[in-house]
Design a protein around this nucleic acid. Structure first.
Lengths: 158, 158
DNA sequence: TCAATATAGTTTGATGTCCAAGTAAATGAA
DNA sequence: TTCATTTACTTGGACATCAAACTATATTGA
């Protein structure tokens, strides 16, 4: 018995047992968030898979679909989604391959490209959003108070 | 002016504007956790980089160093760290290449290998832990109450 | 005992992330 | 105007994750 009930509780115990008391709570915070993120990631990916999307590509499509013209310079996309330019290049490559997005020259800047969502892209992202909402977002298993607390605390971290 | 103050707040606004009210909070929870995880991941990676480790490899070494014998079957490692067998294979390959871990036949099961931490591996993980503690874990920027709330809420999610 | 099934790891392929280096175009100072 | 610098994006390399197929070894049931 007592065989590591919960890996994270166990890690906390180890940290204090080694005298790293000042870091034990921070370690637990970081590890817990990492685990929860992994769980959500898996759920989200499962909901998006039938639509041929990953969360990275979904976020990009979702972002474009919310803009007035359905287009944004790749640099803006990276800034909004907080990912590196190389990741945007990669995501747009695949979305373009699947016909969900097109690259267009940016009339305002010769170095830049606009990622433009296609009609098919709009259709796919709408359908994917419905599934994502019903399968993941509509019930994350938290009370209103939990969500309020989480919003407050996570807000301090970003 | 009104130009997306915070991407997550903005996303929440978009969700309700599209009538997905029931999913807006869940979406915000998932997105917030993803962002915070990205931030921590970057800090953790930065602290570990001078030691030639990634978080995945650090966790594996840390796990082995906490065991009695410094060894665990690869399958156990995957179960503890909640990662796929292929990820364990990959991590152990690199750790072995760097001399931090060794694969040994499992005397109890001919199909299995034990990952055993080396003397160098122990040295590296101890040093890395000190840096990780001082640079990331010792100050995550949350009050005791914040941490308590976070622990409570995240506990419900995993 | 033997065939069917399950388990432990590895391999391969697709995706994604970051970093560093490279290319092309825009900007800015002299 | 001109040349150095900055910016926007792409490329290639290293790493990590998941899924599916494959090998070898255990286990089980008839």
């Amino acid at each position: 018995m007592t065989e590591s009930l919960d890996p994270i509780t166990e890690a906390h115990r180890q940290w204090t047992a080694h005298g790293w008391d000042d870091a034990a709570e921070g370690m637990e915070v970081v590890t817990s968030i990492t685990r929860v993120q992994q769980i959500f990631q898996a759920e989200v990916d499962a909901a998006l898979k039938p639509h041929g999307l990953t969360f990275a590509r979904f976020e990009l499509l979702r972002l474009l679909s919310f803009t007035k013209t359905g287009a944004l310079p790749l640099g803006k996309v990276g800034a909004r989604l907080q990912v590196h330019a190389a990741s945007v290049t990669s995501a747009v490559d695949r979305l373009e391959r699947d016909g969900l997005v097109e690259r267009q020259a940016n009339p305002d800047d010769g170095r830049s490209f606009l990622a433009t969502i296609t009609t098919l892209g709009r259709k796919v992202v709408e359908e994917a959003t419905l599934d994502l909402n019903s399968q993941v977002f509509e019930d994350v298993g938290l009370s209103a108070k939990d969500i309020a607390d989480l919003r407050r605390v996570l807000g301090k971290l970003r």
